[in-house]
Amino acid sequence: MGSPARTAGEKADFKKELTEVVPHLRAFARGLCGRPDMADDLVQEALLKAWAAQDRFEPGTSMRAWTFVILRNAYLTDMRRNRFRGDYDEGVAERVLTAPAGQEEPIHLSDMHRALLTLPPERREALLLVGAGGFSYEEAAEICGCAIGTIKSRVGRARAALNTMLTSGSIPQRAIGDGAAHRAILEELDGLAAGNRVAVNQ
């Protein structure tokens, strides 16, 4: 909007770049909402929104960061509509991540996934962006619409929590059926969404 009309070449570039980030959007979405089918629905939703908003994309900037903001907003909206519940993906169940010496049970990738899903959403997304997606703290702060210090603190807390869960082998099941817990999660999400209105809201 307001930007000069895009040339055919620019439009083709947009489509190409958007296509290239789809695997990353899927990975981010999978980390956020756990179940592959729901994650892919979320990616489709984000792609539609990104497409509709393509005039607002500045060529030369990071398509991955731009689309992550859109995906994140779609996720927060859907979460508040109760579409995702952080369900556990059984598809990752059996892979061994590390097999620490002196510990009877190795750490499985599924343990990590489950542990990740028990984190409060704002810490989970911060850790996903920085620890999994390889974004800098600055980029992650921009994606989440918050201060760099906030991201650093969230990542730090997320890491500490995962470390405790994974090294002690005590990964709590998320109390999804628990009304109070669910309300608390929704309140957190409201807070998150309120802090981030920079992005494309379709």
Binding site: T98, I107, L109, L116, N163
Partner: peptide
């Protein structure tokens, strides 16, 4: 840098590397 930190990458990369539906 506990060993599991690379697991986060693995979790992410394993999805990135999946064939795109």
């Amino acid at each position: 840098n506990p060993e599991w930190t690379q697991g986060l990458r693995q979790l992410y990369n394993s999805v990135v590397e999946e064939p795109l539906p």
